[in-house]
Design a protein around this nucleic acid. Structure first.
Length: 432
RNA sequence: UCCCCGGUAGCUCAGCUGGUAGAGCGGGUGGCUGUUAACCACUUAGUCGGCGGUUCGAGUCCGUCCCGGGGAGCCA
């Protein structure tokens, strides 16, 4: 019995016999020689079967193999300059596990609708592999980063009694005894309770928006990473956001360069992502827009067009601070010097990828927070627990939320967020 | 909710000013001892999204509905 291994490790077995278990990616034949492209989840390798070198039934078995049939081969690893990965397998025996039915995804072009209907199979293709490997890496690196910085992972609930921010549309579901529950749109308010308990926390989990957004930048279910830090002011989380983003980009450049190559990502665009990030205020952003001939009413939030124009002025993420308070959520603290401005930040990714981070210093004064709740017509009873955080040892604190899919889309250079999560949930689509 | 584009073979698409459907890929059969989305030959394959209308005749024109794609607003 030969050594069972995976395709990413065959380089350690040159000249030796190994067993590879996987699926047929594609095959080519030429009379008395057959080429099987086998994938096993770690990579793709070409296996060569020569008629005179294997048992007749092994050679003829290649005829019935269809795309994505599962199989096991015993083969000698050979370095070969002609092979894309540098190695090839010289097959001596093969066992067919299952002959797949006609596989719907051929190695040719397909449209997005068809691919999304077959998302469970689309995941097997190399581009999707590259994206989802980078996603896994980004999430793990972010957690490693927070752990090193002394944060604790603080899971926020997904079923919530009310809207967190009172703004966007929520998915509603029945709870017990006639009560309603809503799927969380942010773990932030709970993270604030965590920060008052542990000092530095972060949440990582899915969030839900029932808005009928139908663009490449929106999913109805997406993941957010939300650090919240006690005693931190706006400046502190600007530094934290900058450092986190640089760390993630740098780590992908270092450890996932093969995947970036598969995605044909222009890495020079990522290499320029170094600290410090440019910082501008909302008012300065208006100046940029005015120079570009865009008139924007003071007090209105920026839309997709404005975000794109502003981010195009820079080669790295830009941090926009001090938006008018009326454009932002109730919990954001007003600037003590200019009370009509919020101590907040939006981080816009370059190349038109949009807002990847939104954060702020939180209102820590009890009376002002009560006032804000009233201004936003929010039911005070639902927020009594949140007000408690200002009754019992209130301190300045700040945090932000980083959209995982938008960040990954930007790093990968992928236009549409639907490819940055295994099973995207979209306005028109909840299958598979 | 609004605006734009689309729906023809399993997939990707072509089909002009109306005359009852084509290609490539995939599937099938055969050929080829170094193929790289292999190639060559033959072959298979359709309620032209649904309904209604105009017309001698509709994939094509009109109306309407359904589905999908892109965008706006909203947001990460």
């Amino acid at each position: 019995m030969s050594q069972i291994t995976t395709i990413d490790r065959v380089g350690q077995f040159v000249g030796q016999m190994v067993t590879i278990r996987g699926w047929l990616y594609n095959k080519r034949s030429s009379g008395k020689i057959r080429f099987l492209l086998i994938r096993d989840g770690t990579g793709i390798i070409q296996s060569v079967i020569v008629k005179n070198e294997v048992a007749p039934e092994v050679f003829s078995a290649t005829d019935i193999l269809t795309q994505e049939s599962s199989l096991e081969v015993d083969a000698t690893v050979r370095a070969d300059a002609r092979a894309p990965g540098g190695y090839e397998l010289q097959v001596s025996d093969m066992r067919v596990i299952q002959v797949a039915e006609d596989y719907p995804i051929s190695p040719k072009e397909h449209g997005p609708s068809f691919l999304l209907d077959n998302r469970h199979l689309w995941l097997r293709s190399s581009k999707q592999h590259a994206i989802l490997r980078i996603r896994s890496h980004v999430i793990q690196e972010a957690q490693a980063y927070f752990n090193r910085e002394g944060f604790i992972l603080f899971d926020a609930p997904i079923l919530t009694p009310t809207a967190c921010e009172g703004t966007s549309t929520l998915f509603e579901t029945d709870y017990f005894y006639g009560e309603k529950a809503y799927l969380s749109q942010s773990g932030q308010l709970y993270a604030e309770a965590g920060a008052m308990a542990f000092g530095k926390v972060y949440t990582l989990g899915p969030t839900f928006r029932a808005e009928k957004s139908k663009t490449r930048r929106h999913l109805t279910e997406f993941w957010m990473l939300e650090p919240e830090v006690a005693f931190a002011e706006l400046e502190d989380i600007l530094l934290l956001a900058e450092e986190l983003v640089c760390h993630l980009v740098n780590s992908v450049l270092t450890y996932r360069s093969e995947e970036l190559k598969v995605l044909d990502r222009d890495v020079t665009k990522l290499q320029s992502v170094v600290r410090p990030f440019p910082r501008i205020t909302y008012d300065q952003a208006l100046d940029i827009l005015r120079e570009k001939g865009i008139s924007h009413h003071w007090g209105d939030d920026f839309g997709a067009t404005e975000d794109t124009i502003i981010s195009e002025q820079f080669d790295r993420p830009v941090m926009i601070t001090h938006y008018p308070v009326q454009t932002k959520a109730f919990y954001m603290k007003g600037d003590p010097l200019k009370p009509n401005l919020a101590l907040c930040v939006d981080v816009l990714a370059p190349e038109g990828y949009g807002e990847i981070i939104g954060g702020s210093q939180r209102e820590d004064d009890y009376d002002k927070l009560v006032e804000r709740l009233e201004q936003h017509n929010l039911p005070r009873e639902a927020f009594e627990w949140y007000l408690d955080l200002r009754r019992y040892g209130s301190v300045p604190h700040s945090g932000f939320g980083l959209g995982i899919e938008r960040t990954i889309g930007w790093i990968c250079g992928i236009k549409h967020l639907r490819e940055t999560i295994p099973f995207p949930r979209l306005l028109q689509r909840i299958y598979p």
